[in-house]
Simulated scan of single mutants.
Amino acid sequence: MPPPSLPVTLDCSLRHYGGEHPAHAHATHAQLLYALSGRMELEVDGHSAYVDTVTGLWIPAGTRHAYLAPPGAQMLVMDVVAPPCTALDKLRRFQVPRAASCPPQALAATERLQLLLDAPTLLPRRGVDVQALEAHIRGALHTPWPTARMAAWCHLSPQRFHARWLELTGRTPQQWLRQLRLDQAERLLARGRSLEASAADCGYASASALAYALRRDRGTGARALRRR
């Protein structure tokens, strides 16, 4: 897509959000946003939307929008002042290019804008709240978590959930879950909890299964962790 007609004024910044913000509109500039970490739920002209680390949103000037974000969400926000232009005057959901997944100082604003204008448009799709699902799983880590169960919690098919999770975390659901279990097991063992109790708390079938996973993936054992 060609760049918008000049003159264009760009203000690119990293902003930290948390909580709810009432509906408002920017009369003089369009706004482009996506997450560098976390996610944000939005209502745009009465329709629900979201942004995360792989899904961005172009909000035209004058478009009313409200948002809700968990504490600590980091959003890349670009305010764009430009003459009327088809590329900038329509609400658009786009796929965030990897080259644009960096803080403002790491990429020139004009280059970032061009990358985002050229990014593929995404059809509406159900969002996946990584932090919410992680908190839910942590509360029941001792139970089995097949991909189908994780997908059902997010109201997605296992195939779509697998693809979205890989996009968002860079790992398959089971790779991510394995690391979550091991991280928690290491913390418990470092606090002096027994190998058997740690295995049960973290969803391993036996103490030997946890011991094997620690050696294979972390190159350590229960005794070494307790000495830390």
Rank of each mutant, 00 (worst) to 15 (best):
P146L: 14
A140T: 13
H24G: 06
R93L: 05
V80C: 07
L182W: 00
Q175N: 13
E167R: 12
Q31N: 09
T110F: 12
R164I: 01
F161R: 01
T86C: 08
V77N: 13
R226M: 09
S48F: 10
V80S: 02
G139M: 03
R227L: 10
A73K: 00
D89G: 01
R227K: 07
E196F: 08
S13C: 13
R181M: 06
H21I: 14
C202T: 08
R160S: 03
A30H: 05
L156H: 13
A69C: 03
L57M: 14
R125F: 14
D201A: 15
T28I: 12
G170E: 06
L91R: 09
L115Q: 04
A30Y: 07
A66C: 06
G221I: 11
P124M: 14
A148G: 02
A152D: 09
E111W: 09
S13M: 04
L122K: 14
P124S: 13
Q175F: 10
A224G: 07
R193W: 04
P146Q: 06
L182D: 00
P97G: 08
H24W: 04
G170W: 06
R187F: 03
P144R: 10
R226D: 00
H155G: 06
T220S: 13
P173K: 01
S48N: 11
A108G: 09
T55H: 09
Q179K: 10
D201Q: 15
A108E: 07
L42A: 01
V96Q: 03
V128C: 06
P84A: 07
Q95V: 04
S198I: 08
A205V: 08
W165T: 05
K90A: 13
Y204N: 05
R92L: 02
G170F: 05
L156Q: 02
T143W: 02
S37H: 09
K90I: 15
A35E: 00
L180E: 02
G203D: 06
W58F: 10
R64P: 11
A25I: 11
Q159I: 14
S208M: 11
R125K: 12
T63K: 12
T55L: 08
T121N: 10
T147F: 08
E186H: 03
G127T: 07
D89Y: 02
T121S: 15
G219P: 05
S37E: 03
R112G: 01
A61C: 07
M1E: 10
H16T: 10
A27V: 01
Q95W: 00
Q31T: 10
L177Y: 01
D201L: 15
L33G: 00
V77S: 08
L42W: 09
A163D: 12
Y204E: 02
E41M: 13
P22S: 07
A197M: 11
L76N: 14
T53Q: 10
H155L: 07
Q174Y: 12
T110A: 15
P2Y: 05
L133F: 02
I137R: 09
L33Q: 00
D201M: 15
G62T: 14
P158Q: 03
E43A: 15
V81W: 15
